[in-house]
């Protein structure tokens, strides 16, 4: 269970209060206007921002003392998910070992996940040689090898065309079925939310609420 209890944060003249509980295995789509604070929520959970007051707990334990890398969280950013000077294989490997120290097992895992996302044979290419969709698939592959129970997606498909987007959503569905993470995805597109059968969260008046007509389904 991911619990934000009165986690509040003031940035400049804006003040947010997040008070919400999300199920351990569940997909949540976070909708709201630009600048409404959707990214702020992700940054708080990811550890890039610390709340002024309140607490954030995963399965009953506070994650606040943890550095971003120590939290049970993996994030797919909107852009710049990959290092352009490193190969696909190494970009994914960073998810297993930040020092790139890999065992034979690790190599096998990486090879497996590369073919899972449909990029077999691309292991030694650099991000610059791939299309935007392929790059996001590499980033998704890294999320897979990290096997973190919380997956945060910050508009991961916003730069992709419709066909690529559909492929990415299928891949994401696969990942969700396999790993059953707690997903929070920022999106502008209600169709994305529907395709992933997500619970919709709304940002309203600097607070986040579960959209009422869906509470029953949950």
């Amino acid at each position: 269970m991911l619990q934000l209890t009165n986690a509040s944060l003031t940035l400049g003249d804006r003040n947010w209060i997040f008070d919400i509980t999300l199920q351990t295995h569940g997909v949540h789509a976070l909708l709201g206007r630009s600048g409404s604070g959707k990214s702020t929520l992700l940054n708080l959970v990811g550890g890039f921002l610390q709340p002024d007051k309140g607490d954030i707990k995963w399965n009953g334990q506070s994650v606040l003392p943890l550095q971003p890398a120590e939290r049970p969280v993996t994030t797919l950013f909107q852009q710049n998910n990959l290092f352009n000077h490193l190969s696909v294989q190494k970009n994914i490997a960073l998810g297993i070992s930040p020092k790139l120290q890999l065992s034979a097992d690790d190599h096998e895992r990486i090879d497996a996940v590369i073919s899972d996302v449909g990029l077999a044979g691309y292991a030694n290419k650099r991000p610059g040689q791939l299309s935007g969709g392929e790059q996001q698939r590499v980033a998704l592959a890294r999320c897979m090898v990290r096997k973190m129970p919380i997956l945060l997606l910050d508009e991961p498909f916003s730069a992709l065309d419709a066909t690529t987007r559909k492929e990415m959503i299928d891949l994401l569905c696969q990942l969700i079925t396999d790993h059953k993470p707690c997903v929070i995805m920022i999106t502008h597109d209600a169709d994305d939310a529907q395709a992933l059968e997500a619970t919709v969260l709304d940002m309203q008046h600097n607070q986040v609420v579960i959209r009422s007509d869906q509470v029953a389904n949950n």
Binding site: Q67, A69, T75, F77, N81, L94
Partner: peptide, 9 residues
């Protein structure tokens, strides 16, 4: 943020 989330330091 990527560096932070992967713990590369």
């Amino acid at each position: 943020r990527l560096l932070q989330s992967l713990g590369i330091q």
